[in-house]
Design a binder for these strands. Structure first.
Lengths: 347, 347
DNA sequence: TTGAAAGCGTTACCAC
DNA sequence: GTGGTAACGCTTTCAA
């Protein structure tokens, strides 16, 4: 049962080397020999030992993936995209769940990466600190990031600032002025993504001349987080915003759930926009800026493979533009309508 | 930079063999030598090549995990539990996303498993068909399942039938009779889990003598699925159920969202119970039967390691009882209250 | 307690 | 085209 290439060779009546060549491509082998070897391999159910192959070739046929969370939409989707792309190419995927601040994360960087179990690494939304970057470099394997900040490695991501700006502009065009950006962890270190999106929000507000109407509400970046933040923010009907931009759909959806709970009508009394096009967006009729994390994962695999094939290839940043998906969570603000109605009466 | 054990040995002034022994446990090494070797290893940042270790020892220090979905709460949580447990033991995790019916799944079973890249495999909610079971066996490595049906492999799971029965009894005790079980994919092959839970539901209904009040509504097992199914089911206020049991929290939560949309009050007009204790359960005040998938993942690792250590160990099924978590999504049915009120008036 | 040498299962270089 | 043989980097007898 423990059939090695030697067994295949014997069965096909050739030498180990010929068998190897016949099976894994390599040099010249006559067509006849090749098919004979193939059949022999098939018959005894031969599968090469990956450890032996790795040792001999220096290639592990395996890609590492590090991400801080597995249970959030974006990350799970990226992971599936990566997995699918790798599977197609016959590559394995070794997963590391590196939640910030955990002991596990420390071990991943200090112990696991050094083992060089993989030919390259994909880092998803990692935001490594200096020490971690150092370990990543010391690893001596190509790294590609999805949602990565730096320019030292190749990366794939949407233009976050642009997406937030577009979303804000949409709200402004509808007549909203008092707009709240919800997102940016209350205590934790902020994600780069949230910073960029907040920046885009502020830029748009400033350009529209209503920087002082801009509100920023901190919120854990999850559906319950957005819910909790919105419950607080919508409590006082006096000075509540007429529109909310969630740093991502999860937060926006949490806000919609909160609004419904509080009896605040969406979109007539409150407009909500998100960024993502989360799997629940449709269900909540959420207008959002769409990104497709699966494709980003697939693109990252592509890039990584290029870097593995040519280690000297310079890093390259891919920046995608998110497209707006109009649904029905936005409308002109109630005050706007009232003003318009007043104008009409006046005429 | 490419520091091998030979470099460590040279630096510590010992032979390769001694260095190996000092580092990876093995036989006798004097304390002094050991610490000298350790220091040398540390200084040059030595990490053993996993391929070489695997080849020499026959152990890959790697565990495979196969699951049909990554983006569902239960699966993501189990995965995190597994990852954490493996990390603590210095083991790597190779992930296979085997969505039913995909080409990727076929390749995983036909090509990837045969490579024996891991010492053992954890199958989460896999429900392999005959061919797949055959491949699993042919792999010749221990397999442990989380939510597994068979008794050929060790497994960890909650008692699904019991959980559904308890949930149904809770509803019955409150006075509900017209109860709907929501779950069981409309088109797909049904998950064993859903079958067992439906069975538990029916048993409880029969025992209570109201089998003919039992309703079964098919639904995709996701939040949007539960939402869609509930929108249909709650449309006609005439013969709608007074209570819903979701096959899992996701479905139950979808139903709550639908009820709110339709203006059906939960719990006064509709009671809802789930099974899981999903991360959103709190936010929706969902009464549910709690399971902790993370712990199941950790337990699976434990079991698998036992099987790897002793391949002859007989399989062992662990069945957990889910505990009820009372929140406020359930109450006596409106008709019940009316009846009670009528009784009071009559007196 | 230590060192030399023989594997582990492949690939890859070199003769033939 | 094909067959020896030396790596690949580590563990593990077996002697010393």
């Amino acid at each position: 049962m423990a059939s090695g290439i030697e067994d295949v060779a014997r069965r096909a009546g050739v030498s180990k080397s010929t068998a190897s060549r016949a099976l894994s491509g390599g040099g010249y082998v006559s067509e006849e020999t090749r098919s004979r070897v193939r059949r022999a391999a098939y018959e005894i159910g031969y599968a090469p030992s990956t450890s032996a192959v790795s040792l001999a070739t220096g290639r592990t046929q395996n890609v590492g993936v590090v991400m801080p969370y597995l249970n959030r939409w974006f990350f799970a989707e990226v992971l599936e995209g990566i997995q699918t792309a790798l599977l197609e190419r016959g590559l394995d995927l070794t997963l590391y769940d590196a939640e910030p601040g955990t002991d596990g994360r420390r071990r991943i960087f200090d112990d696991f990466l050094a083992r060089k179990r993989f030919d390259g690494l994909i880092a998803v939304g990692l935001e490594p600190d200096d020490h971690e970057v150092e370990r990543l470099v010391a690893m001596g394997r190509p790294v590609v990031s999805v949602v990565g900040a730096g320019s030292e490695t190749s990366s794939v991501a949407i233009d976050d600032e642009h997406a937030a700006r577009r979303a804000t502009e949409h709200l402004l065009e509808l007549g909203h002025r008092r707009i709240a950006f919800v997102g940016g962890e209350p205590d934790h270190h902020w994600a780069q993504v949230d910073r960029s999106r907040l920046r885009g929000f502020h830029t748009a507000m400033e350009d529209a001349g209503c920087a002082d109407e801009a509100i920023h509400i901190r919120s854990e970046v999850t559906i319950p987080g957005g819910y909790a933040a919105a419950v607080d923010a919508l409590g006082d009907s006096r000075d509540r915003p007429t529109a909310i931009l969630g740093t991502c759909d999860e937060v926006a959806i949490g806000a919609i759930i909160a609004a419904r709970r509080l009896g605040v009508q969406v979109p007539s009394q409150l407009s909500v926009v998100g960024i993502d096009d989360h799997e629940f967006a449709e269900m909540f009729s959420l207008t959002t800026l769409r990104q497709v994390p699966r494709e980003q994962g697939a693109a990252a695999v592509e890039l990584l493979l290029d870097h593995i094939a040519d280690p000297d290839r310079p890093p390259e940043q891919t920046s995608l533009k998110a497209r707006m998906v109009m649904r029905s969570s936005t409308a002109p603000p109630p005050t706007h309508m009232t003003a318009a109605a007043a104008d009409m009466r006046r005429e």
